[in-house]
């Protein structure tokens, strides 16, 4: 019994971080129809900022988190202006963004590799290697903190989307762009803000990642498929769906890793993706695709 609780606890901790990683991706897809394959590489970028903040100045990664988020959000705005804005009216925009963001991912990886080499890094605040014990259940503090902070950030994001004026505009634009524009929403500005927020969330996730996982520039390839499967499973663009998929799959993956073998745990995400595409292609919370 203790082992089951143990594994579930570890799964929940990781689920929070994956949920945070995925929610930014989902937001950007929902509002902008950008399939952002560069999202995980930007998470790694955020992780490096937190890493150097700790290494050089001894700043705790949890304190670096807002700094990472802001730096990445600004980067997001620049990327959008330089790479995305021109083609936003193209009929094949979503398809083009796949190629475009793939290229950006490689450029980010290359730049990080050139700057910081391909050494494995991990930020090591004291709590990263410490743990609580409840009975025999072992709770690593690093994962616990990362999980809690992720859940808090996602909660804030949800409240922001639900209650703020910009949140209303973002939801409206996601659901019906033309109608939102007709009601006076500046949909281009809303798109830019959502992109900035989405990439800012990648920065925040990066700060947490920096002490939960060891990372190096090419690490993002491991995550891109996992995150994409979370977003597809949740129903493209549904943040709630992405979060639920992240938690449930992380917990399942933790059990698979413990009982069957850790090499199989990533498989969980792809198997789930496969099943979802087979039986519920619109995802858990997605709209049924329309027959045109």
């Amino acid at each position: 019994m203790d082992q089951i609780i143990q594994v579930a606890v570890l799964g929940i901790g990781l689920g929070g971080v994956f949920a945070l990683m995925g929610s930014g991706l989902s937001l950007v897809f929902g509002v902008m129809r950008i399939v952002n394959l560069a999202h995980p590489s930007l998470i790694i970028g955020g992780a490096y900022i937190a890493y150097w903040g700790f290494k050089l100045y001894g700043i705790d990664p949890l304190i670096m988190l807002p700094v990472c988020a802001v730096i990445l959000a600004v980067t997001g705005i620049l990327f959008y202006k330089v790479f995305f804005e021109r083609d936003a009216k193209s009929a094949t925009y979503s398809e083009m963004t796949v190629l475009l963001t793939f290229a950006i991912a490689m450029i980010v990886e290359g730049a990080l590799g050139a700057a910081f080499s391909n050494t494995q890094r991990v930020t090591s605040p004291v709590y990263a290697t410490d743990a609580f014990f409840i009975g025999d259940v072992f709770i690593p503090k690093g994962q616990l903190y990362a999980g809690i902070v992720s859940i808090v950030i996602i909660g804030l994001l949800a409240a922001f989307l639900k209650y703020s004026r910009l949140g209303y505009a973002i939801r409206a634009t996601t659901q019906n762009r033309e109608a939102a524009a007709l009601l006076g929403v500046n949909v281009n500005m809303v798109g830019l803000m959502s992109f900035a927020i989405g990439i800012g969330l990648a920065g925040a996730a990066g700060a947490l990642t920096s002490f939960v996982f060891s990372f190096f520039p090419a690490k993002h390839w491991e995550w891109v498929a996992v995150l994409m499967s979370l977003v597809v499973m949740g129903g493209m663009g549904s943040i709630l769906g992405t979060v639920i998929a992240a938690f449930s799959l992380s917990i399942v993956a933790a059990f698979v890793g413990t009982w069957i073998g850790s090499t199989w745990s990533t498989m969980t995400f792809f198997l789930a993706l496969f099943l979802v595409l087979l039986f519920r292609p619109q995802g858990l919370f997605g709209e049924k695709p329309e027959l045109v």
Binding site: R171, A172, Q175, N176, A179, L182
Partner: peptide
């Protein structure tokens, strides 16, 4: 102006749709 069909935000409540009507 109310365009043909699908002028609403389907996953927002009736009240939220009305709030969007007064967005400006």
């Amino acid at each position: 102006f109310v365009p043909q069909e699908r002028a609403l935000f389907p996953k927002m409540t009736v009240r939220e749709n009305l709030k969007m009507g007064g967005y400006i």
